[in-house]
Computed example of a mutant assay.
Amino acid sequence: APIFVDSPLATRASEVFAKHAGEMAAGERLRDALQAKQVRFTESVEQSKAIGRIRSFHIIIAASGMCEAGRIRHHLRNWLWRSDATVLLVGYQAQGTLGRIMQDGAMRVRLMGEEVQVRARIRAIDLYSGHADAPELAAWLAARQPIAGNVFLTHGELEAIDGLKARLAADFPALRVVVPALDDAFALTGAPARQTERERPARIAPHSAGRPDWHNDLSRLILDINDTVAGAADERARGVVLRRLRRALEAD
């Protein structure tokens, strides 16, 4: 089956891996895979669009992560509504992203301004990520003891950050661990780091970072409105729904 790598950045990264294949375990197997006749790297937008005209079985590897931008969104618009398609989510999907919304079982999504019915099979691979896990991060820190400054935990959902913080506190009691909120500022000169005043107000409430926000609520509302209008018995009933919505908006 043809495999299309439809991501300019992935193409550049693959070239780097192929160039240094000799420095990796089983590097020749990787080089052979990248040079296989069924693997095709796209470059231009026209080549990317041309993939959408293929109806026989094929595999598309596209970016960006969590389906939030890039060429993957065009492919999703072409295939999400098809029951013979499979969307394989590779790696972590953060809350509020399109990838997470599909992974959580949404039957409809808003995509590029359009409502799309999800009929494709949604699957996920949990262990594909190349990021270190908690034991590896702890081992990395252990090799760098003693640490005079601070360790900042900034990446991940709050539950995961809290779990890693508790693990580090147990393994390294003297370690100063900081979990900053969005837009917090610190002076890193000297040890330990010192929190400073913000130059401007925080953009959003700290507890809202990394969670579904009003954009997600708006998308769900639009989908619900479309369902209600489409499910009305006739033109008159649809008009009643729309007038009620209009009055609600005017009342605010």
Rank of each mutant, 00 (worst) to 15 (best):
I3P: 04
I3S: 08
V5R: 01
D6A: 04
P8L: 12
P8R: 15
L9N: 10
L9G: 06
E15T: 07
V16F: 05
F17R: 12
K19L: 15
E23L: 13
L30P: 02
D32E: 15
A36D: 14
Q38P: 05
R40W: 03
E43K: 12
E43M: 08
I59Y: 07
I59L: 13
A62E: 07
G65L: 04
C67M: 03
E68M: 08
A69H: 07
A69Q: 09
A69F: 04
R71W: 04
R71Y: 01
I72G: 09
R73A: 10
H75Q: 02
R77D: 14
N78W: 12
S83V: 07
D84W: 00
D84E: 14
Q93V: 02
A94T: 06
G99T: 02
G99A: 06
R100K: 12
G105A: 05
M107A: 14
L111M: 08
M112T: 08
E114F: 04
Q117C: 09
V118D: 07
A124L: 11
I125H: 08
G130H: 13
L137D: 09
A139K: 14
A142W: 06
A143I: 05
Q145V: 02
A148Q: 12
L153E: 00
L153R: 00
L158C: 05
I161S: 01
G163S: 14
R167N: 08
D171I: 00
F172Q: 11
P173N: 01
R176I: 07
V178A: 03
D183K: 02
D184F: 00
T189W: 03
G190E: 12
R194Y: 00
R200K: 13
R200I: 07
R203W: 06
P206Q: 03
H207R: 11
S208L: 09
G210P: 01
D213F: 01
D217T: 12
L221H: 04
I222D: 12
I222M: 12
L223S: 09
L223C: 03
D224A: 12
N226I: 04
G231H: 13
R236Y: 10
R238N: 05
V240N: 08
V240S: 07
R243E: 15
L245R: 07
A251R: 04
